[in-house]
Design a protein around this nucleic acid. Sequence first.
DNA 1: GGCAAGCAGTGCAATTTTTGCATCGCCTTG
DNA 2: CAAGGCGATGCAAAAATTGCACTGCTTGCC
Lengths: 315, 315
Amino acid sequence: MRFMTSLKFIDVVAREGSIRKAADKLAITSTALNRRILQIEDEIGQPLFERLPGGVRLNTAGEIFVQHIRSQFADLARVQSQIADLSGIRRGHVQIASGADALRRLLPETIATYRAAHPAVSFDLARCYGEEAEARLFSLDADIALIFAPIRAAHVHVAATLRQQIQCVMPADHRLAGREQIKLRDLAGERLVLPTAQSGVRQLLDTGLLRRQVDMDVILESDSFEFMQNFLHFESSLFFQIPIAIGAGGGRQDAGQADGFDPLLVARPMDPADVAPGTLHICYLKGRVLPVAAAKFLDDIITTLRDTYPDDVDQ
Amino acid sequence: MRFMTSLKFIDVVAREGSIRKAADKLAITSTALNRRILQIEDEIGQPLFERLPGGVRLNTAGEIFVQHIRSQFADLARVQSQIADLSGIRRGHVQIASGADALRRLLPETIATYRAAHPAVSFDLARCYGEEAEARLFSLDADIALIFAPIRAAHVHVAATLRQQIQCVMPADHRLAGREQIKLRDLAGERLVLPTAQSGVRQLLDTGLLRRQVDMDVILESDSFEFMQNFLHFESSLFFQIPIAIGAGGGRQDAGQADGFDPLLVARPMDPADVAPGTLHICYLKGRVLPVAAAKFLDDIITTLRDTYPDDVDQ
DNA sequence: GGCAAGCAGTGCAATTTTTGCATCGCCTTG
DNA sequence: CAAGGCGATGCAAAAATTGCACTGCTTGCC
């Protein structure tokens, strides 16, 4: 898009905080970039950047203008997507910000299904925690966010929610594997593998643990569910996930046998009286009109979830 | 704005329906313009115009894209207005589409007051009827519309409404000048000067006249209130206006003596039982964020109206 | 039926704009 | 105080945009 390059350049300079670094990234000389910026500042009639000894930084006018630029790009993407949609081929690009939970099974499966129907649509997945996901929505680096945590920001529109009870995952031969539900006091003396403090799962567990004052043995903290799950093969311990991370049907009736879930492990729900269920929020920026591809994918995710967890989805 | 020229060009071509005519208007050669358009179509990946023997016309993709372009321009104006607002001078440009009613007194007075406070703001007034005003909002040729008629379009947001009773204007020595209110049957045998059929005032009168089956003598139809008012000096007759067209306080207690209103004429309200009060709609395009200057002016108009007609304004 | 007029598209040369190089002045840091 | 990083600027090379002349096409009018 020739007619957007100058704007793109400003966006990159704003992100990099330096004209020279941005020029490197854009594969042009710093002088060319510098002059484009001077020219636009001239057209606007006001400087957009403060010149600091170590680089540049947006001033207030620049903040407003860059926000405008980003919304322009998002809008253009939507328009292109709509236009492509006219000719039958659904093409486009969908940017998703998601917690690690949804990246394990839900998104791979849903995206694969979607792409089977619309091969011209590409995806961008950013793994991040709630706050960053919201920031990405705001800076239009993400169209859709899946956040398993409370939503703070007022500028986020929640398209759907899914209630999920935390599951305790353990080796199939563990002494608790026979239980229908796990209570917090069952965890006393057990070796626990917990997600990092930023994770929604961890926050719910901490709230419960604090209330019950259970004494437990945290042997490992990680932000990688895959690592934690694999760790269980080597040292018998407990870790925690929500059903969408385990897979279709996982963590419900027959978690352990769920399709594709590690056959040596079983998942058992925590007692809701001990650990409150959490909520997965599926959201986008308030006031935005999503590109066709993103809007359709949002529909798909919500439909998938409603099919899998008919009683737990709200819209 | 260098980086918007190509887009502006497309907008003009779409409006002119011909590359050559647009090129004339833009003071460049048709070949240069033609190539810019081909280039953008190439970047979009799809043609935006149908090539007809007599020129070009937007296809569906083009319609979508041009709508996008116009919203870009409106957005840019808002951003510039916001940025200018940072430096203290409120500068900008406000585009208004209005019926003739509001153009007589309300808008001249309100704009003059506004400009006294913010001399760097310029205005654009387009006199038009309801349907065209809505079209102007949609094509972003107007920020604000004042329509004395029902609103049809779903994409219009009504910021405020003002109920206005139609006034019968007559020479001060007319036999009806003493009445508090005028009834439709009083008009029997009178010479009437009526606004054109498109006008909201006329539509309300017609509805009433049709119901009461009053026989009257329409001697003149015009779309100019000024002309009709002046005509009364030469031939004793009756014409009709709403209070905002008459002036501050006009048509209320003491219409005839209202400041600046023609001293040889008096205005008396029609009986609401005979002619239903109409509604002035003050609106802008749904979903739009108005430029600072326009938003502030909208506030001013509503405040003015609420001060003048405290009981008749709704928001 | 033919001819003029109006339209969009294209090859090529002139012109304008953009880019890159070398370099300046400024500030911070070690 | 010197070194290194930053943005700004003069100037020449490179790239783009533009205008001119012309094509092929259709419509409407004589």
